[in-house]
Nucleic acid binder design. Structure first.
Lengths: 350, 350
DNA sequence: GTGACGCTTGGAATCGATTACATCGAGACG
DNA sequence: CGTCTCGATGTAATCGATTCCAAGCGTCAC
């Protein structure tokens, strides 16, 4: 593959001049510029990004470590991240942790070795020493969706509390009183926060959230299935189940169907994270929708701010409840739950 | 960040010795090795992959350019690709073309600039000069799922013909006679092949595939919806629709529902590409399942063979029909369609 | 006429690794 | 005891870019 030397030779100039032309440095004569451009064209020359990165100490690349690519929520997030990054002149390398801390570490290490300019992480656990060290060492980093408390890194996420309150109001209005939750791993913020928000909202209606109604899942479909089976085996099964993510809701649907039961007649179901498929499931699933695209874009902007020396801001956006049929038919007049506007509800500087 | 020089200084040896230790070169004394390892540990040193790549002219990285990350088929493919690559010591950088040739080109160029060791592509179109040139110039490349005819590049894909025949048999058995297809872009092999396979299978039953029953889609949900609306507006609408991918099937489902019609009572629906969600849609969708994971793994193996100087083989695996309820209830005895075994049906060397 | 200035240009150092080649010392062997 | 061999190590070139510095040269003002 042609290098800058070949171009220089073909154009009859030095490599310095070729580099200047390529980097739009002003002091190059029109003549030299033309000859270089012609040589570049005829040789099909493309600058070697590896060499350039070594010299400039910048890769113009962002790392994105997500918990699970197979989760539509994260693939949508990844897509918006890539889009925004591209518009700002960055590429992104995605690492899929599959909810496994060891894999997450593998990817973080790999990305750091490649000297990416910044890291976007949705942590699978409380954070390995590796990641914590990187953050402390000043690697530009931003947490998205999930975060690790006590680490000085901006966080871009959705606040689902209001939406969870709306959901509980919805469930209560439909007469559900024994409500259960399929929680995510306690090591993740989204895992514990959603349970807490649910519990708090329930308390407002005087409803308890007994321990047997808190199932421990891992954000994957199989765990949703397993936990739901456990619920159904209870002497007094819940009459409504809230899954802390869309994949576990899918598993729950599986489990209910396998028993020959029906949603919502036998048991109501709701999920955190809305996805296109929920419109088409049987029945359509009531879900809490995050502004996923905006989350991804905001996270990239924050990270790039940090990389380019500007102060980076944490961002919290509101999630909202989308009512469908999986919790039961709503009387027409209460069909529309008042929802807060989508734009930021909070914006704090870090 | 600490460099190899710092390690050398800390260990009291030359950079050459450090490099030897790090690369498991045999002629290093136990003493020197221990001192180097200690220095590496205490400095938290990690080799700079950028510098290493520049020197060795290898990045141990594969590029994967897929047509649409939001399509579950491709995200599953991407996942299996990354997995297999990782087990072989490679990383992968994913580029999402979003079915847009210009974006596809952007990513191919970007990956080439980064000097990836090899490229896995599921082409969105007939191939830009850039990609064709790269193939001709000897960049290790493998096509996966879709391919470009006339280019000397190994292809790893699924052959859906037998499964399409099974599907047509199934539709015919259920009494469907006016069958339509939502095709993918003619510029893609999967776009045109699926139509041809469908037409051929139909012909065996003496059924026509008139032009008005061939809708032009682009593998995205919106086009499935649009095409289906067109079908439903016809003076004589089809009684069965076959969508050439899962996203267009989703769009079709939308369109049918929007008309207040029901699947399969008013119109039957089947899709190419099976995904977990199809089990849970209303009704569950009959689909042709590709061995997606195996496809991804085989593609990586072929590409790595090529990169490491071994001959790379094209691989064709069989797809199979998965019958659910979206084409109508099957009489119990014909419920199970005989399916060919999953393993390779063909294996040719390129 | 000449010094200063500004625009172009090239030479060479540099980024952080790998690796060919040279060197050095110790042990083996005749 | 001289020499040969081999293991361990260091020196320096190299990969392909960017960029500092110096130098060449033309122009202009004084």
């Amino acid at each position: 593959m042609a290098s800058i030397k070949d171009v220089a030779a073909a154009a009859g100039v030095s490599v310095a001049t070729v580099s200047r032309v390529l980097n739009a440095h002003p002091s190059v004569s029109a003549d030299a510029r033309a000859r270089v451009l012609a040589a570049v064209e005829s040789l099909g020359y493309r600058p070697n990004a590896v060499a350039r990165s070594l010299r400039t100490d910048q890769t113009h690349t962002l790392g994105l470590v997500i918990s699970d690519v197979l989760n539509p929520y994260f693939t949508e997030l990844a897509r918006s991240v890539e889009e925004e990054a591209r518009s700002l002149g960055y590429s992104v390398i995605i690492g899929n942790a599959d909810e496994r801390p060891d894999l997450q570490d593998h990817h973080v290490r790999n990305l750091l070795d490649r000297r990416i300019d910044g890291l976007l992480v949705s942590p699978t656990d409380g954070g390995s020493p590796l990641m914590l060290d990187a953050a402390r060492a000043g690697t530009p980093m931003v947490f998205v969706d999930r975060w690790i408390p006590g680490v000085d890194v901006p966080v871009v996420r959705a606040d689902g509390r209001a939406a969870v309150q709306d959901l509980v109001a919805h469930l209560h209005a439909l007469g559900h009183r024994r409500v259960a939750i399929i929680a995510g791993p306690a090591a993740t913020t989204t895992g514990s926060e959603r349970v807490e928000a649910f519990r708090a909202a329930l308390a407002e209606y005087g409803l308890p959230l007994p321990d047997v109604y808190i199932g421990q899942g891992d954000f994957q479909a199989a765990s949703g299935r397993r936990v739901t089976e456990g619920f159904l085996d209870l002497p007094e099964p819940p009459d409504a189940v809230f899954a802390a993510d869309n994949l576990m809701a899918l598993g729950a649907l599986d489990a209910v169907r396998a028993r020959g039961l029906r949603v919502p007649d036998d048991i109501a179901l709701a999920a955190f994270d809305d996805i296109p498929w929920f419109v088409h499931t049987d029945p359509p699933v009531t879900a809490i929708a995050q502004p996923t695209g905006e989350l991804g874009r905001a996270a990239v902007r924050a990270l790039v701010d940090r990389i380019e020396g500007r102060p980076a801001a944490s961002v919290t956006l509101a999630a909202r409840l989308v009512v469908r049929r999986s919790c039961g038919e709503t009387p027409e007049k209460t069909r529309t739950i008042p929802t807060p506007p989508l734009p930021p509800v909070q914006r704090s500087t870090t």
